[in-house]
């Protein structure tokens, strides 16, 4: 029997908002796509763009980056700094020809369990339609 391809989604989330939101989604028994692998970081400000590249190289078909809404950061300004970083990083990736539809940024608070579940399911469906992200996986294969 041929195994059906399922996308792998890596979600980098902050400890204080989105991780708690994901937890809320779980405790409230909202279903969301099991394709996501959540990686908890202290803050969106800690999510170095290298994380995103590494995830794509190591087999992710899509990446979600999510943290506290503006003004809600546990460290006051981590997400504001992160936002500027991603503005620049997105411009760079666009010019390099990296598929930006594969990288989703979101604000998702501790109370937004529904938003998180919806986000994951929506991203998973979208990536499933797009198919595997072979370009980066190829890089990894060639390197091995």
């Amino acid at each position: 029997m041929e195994e059906k391809w399922e996308p792998t989604i890596i979600a980098f989330v902050c400890n204080w908002c989105t991780y708690a939101g994901a937890d809320l989604a779980g405790t409230s028994r909202f279903k969301y796509a099991p394709n996501v692998r959540i990686i908890k970081t202290p803050c969106t400000g800690r999510i170095d763009p290298m994380f995103i590249l590494s995830a794509l190289e190591r087999g992710a078909d899509g990446v979600i980056v999510s943290g506290c809404h503006p003004n809600d950061c546990h460290y006051n300004e981590g997400n504001f700094n992160a936002r500027r970083k991603y503005i620049m990083f997105r411009a760079l990736l666009t010019q390099l020809g990296v598929d930006l539809d594969r990288v989703t940024f979101a604000w998702c608070s501790a109370s937004e369990g529904i938003k998180f579940a919806g986000l994951v399911t929506e991203v998973t469906d979208r990536i499933r339609k797009m198919g595997p992200y072979t370009e980066f996986k190829q890089l990894n294969q060639d390197a091995r």
Binding site: P70, F80, R83, R84, Y86, I87, R90, T104, F105, A106, W107, L119
Partner: peptide
């Protein structure tokens, strides 16, 4: 109010 229409 940095540009943020790419963030959901």
């Amino acid at each position: 109010d940095d540009h943020e229409n790419f963030i959901r």
